[in-house]
Simulated assay, not measured.
Amino acid sequence: MIKIIVAGFKGKMGSTATKMVLDTPGFELVGVLDPHADESNLNELSEYTEDIPVFHRKEDVLAETSVDVWIDFTIPEVAYENTRFALENSIRPVVGTTGLDEEDVKELQRLADQKRIGGLIAPNFAIGAILMMQFAAQAAKYFPDVEIIELHHDNKLDAPSGTAIKTAEMIVEERGAHQQGHPDEKESLAGARGADYQGMKIHSVRLPGLVAHQQVQFGSTGEGLTIRHDSYDRSSFMTGVALACTKVMENEQLVYGLENLL
């Protein structure tokens, strides 16, 4: 039985992850964490009947229970501290919070190596999104001119999304830096062409009604190629989260990207 705690359990992704852990054979939810929660037990919320403690301080988790895996869907500043705390206490992190910078990730990986603790930081847990990124990287060998359009709900705090950045990184690994567009191009409105990553443009859309969507648009002489993934419901991420919780128990490294555990 894998003992799991969910940090950020009141958010949309956190609550979906909480229900997934409760419903998955072989998983045991030993607690949830939110410093701002008014509840002391999960069953105080109408959608739960289970007797699960609500922790308000991460230090209390260690005092009251044992944990194998720490699922984190919080915010970047909190996720870094939570992940560091988990690693320092030999708990395996599965982090879906995006917005961690590259140096933070590297520092956490160094700590995981020292502790010989497995874990995962992933910008996206949907299997289809992982395939979309891998297909896009392969296509970039033949279609070096590409732009990324990512679309998310209007409560998402970071832009561009972690998935868009990861996709761009994977494309650059295959094609290298490549300047696109007309060299004399000028924006009549600042930002109209989007963010620039090694010559490719990334555009972020934030609108109510969206969940998580990304389109990778390739162009070449006389033809185009579009690779798109859509998550219509947050349940699409849970197969990947469940897989990660199992796989990190076998690992001794903190990896970035779910594709490294597939």
Score class of each variant (00 low, 15 high):
1 M>I: 10
45 L>C: 00
63 A>Q: 13
29 L>C: 14
21 V>P: 12
119 G>L: 02
213 H>Q: 13
145 D>A: 14
141 K>G: 14
61 V>A: 07
228 R>A: 08
165 I>E: 15
259 E>V: 03
147 E>F: 01
122 A>T: 06
8 G>C: 02
100 L>Q: 12
165 I>Q: 15
150 E>C: 14
48 Y>Q: 05
55 F>V: 02
162 G>M: 05
215 Q>F: 04
156 K>H: 13
144 P>T: 01
102 E>L: 09
257 G>V: 07
244 A>L: 06
226 T>L: 07
203 H>P: 00
31 G>V: 08
25 P>K: 11
119 G>T: 04
104 D>Q: 15
143 F>D: 08
146 V>K: 00
81 E>A: 10
3 K>C: 02
161 S>D: 05
72 D>H: 07
140 A>P: 02
134 Q>K: 11
56 H>S: 13
132 M>A: 15
182 H>M: 13
115 K>C: 03
221 T>M: 12
197 Y>S: 03
112 A>I: 07
234 R>G: 07
209 G>I: 03
214 Q>K: 03
121 I>S: 07
5 I>V: 15
6 V>W: 03
97 T>W: 08
156 K>T: 11
205 V>Q: 10
39 E>G: 08
84 R>D: 04
49 T>V: 04
95 V>F: 01
9 F>C: 04
132 M>E: 13
12 K>W: 00
54 V>Q: 12
242 A>V: 09
231 S>Y: 02
19 K>W: 00
241 V>P: 02
200 M>D: 12
178 H>N: 14
161 S>F: 01
113 D>K: 11
192 A>E: 15
176 G>H: 09
257 G>F: 06
124 N>P: 01
28 E>N: 13
152 H>R: 14
87 L>M: 08
34 D>C: 04
85 F>P: 00
213 H>I: 05
81 E>M: 06
166 K>E: 12
232 Y>D: 08
210 L>H: 10
14 G>Q: 11
15 S>E: 12
75 I>D: 11
91 I>W: 10
165 I>P: 03
230 D>F: 07
236 S>M: 11
178 H>Y: 15
97 T>H: 06
29 L>V: 08
97 T>P: 01
34 D>I: 01
110 R>K: 14
157 L>R: 15
142 Y>Q: 15
137 A>F: 02
187 E>S: 15
63 A>D: 13
81 E>V: 06
170 M>R: 14
64 E>F: 09
179 Q>E: 14
256 Y>P: 08
174 E>S: 09
4 I>P: 08
251 N>C: 12
54 V>G: 14
241 V>D: 09
181 G>N: 12
93 P>N: 04
250 E>N: 13
254 L>T: 02
190 A>W: 08
209 G>E: 06
190 A>Q: 14
70 W>A: 13
190 A>C: 06
37 A>R: 05
66 S>L: 01
37 A>C: 12
106 K>W: 05
31 G>I: 06
111 L>T: 05
227 I>G: 01
237 F>L: 11
38 D>R: 02
146 V>C: 01
209 G>H: 04
86 A>F: 03
217 Q>G: 00
58 K>P: 01
94 V>I: 07
76 P>V: 03
231 S>K: 06
110 R>E: 15
67 V>M: 09
246 T>P: 01
122 A>P: 00
138 Q>E: 13
6 V>I: 12
55 F>S: 05
104 D>K: 11
62 L>E: 12
198 Q>T: 00
229 H>K: 09
175 R>Q: 09
45 L>A: 02
72 D>M: 11
108 L>V: 04
162 G>P: 07
26 G>M: 09
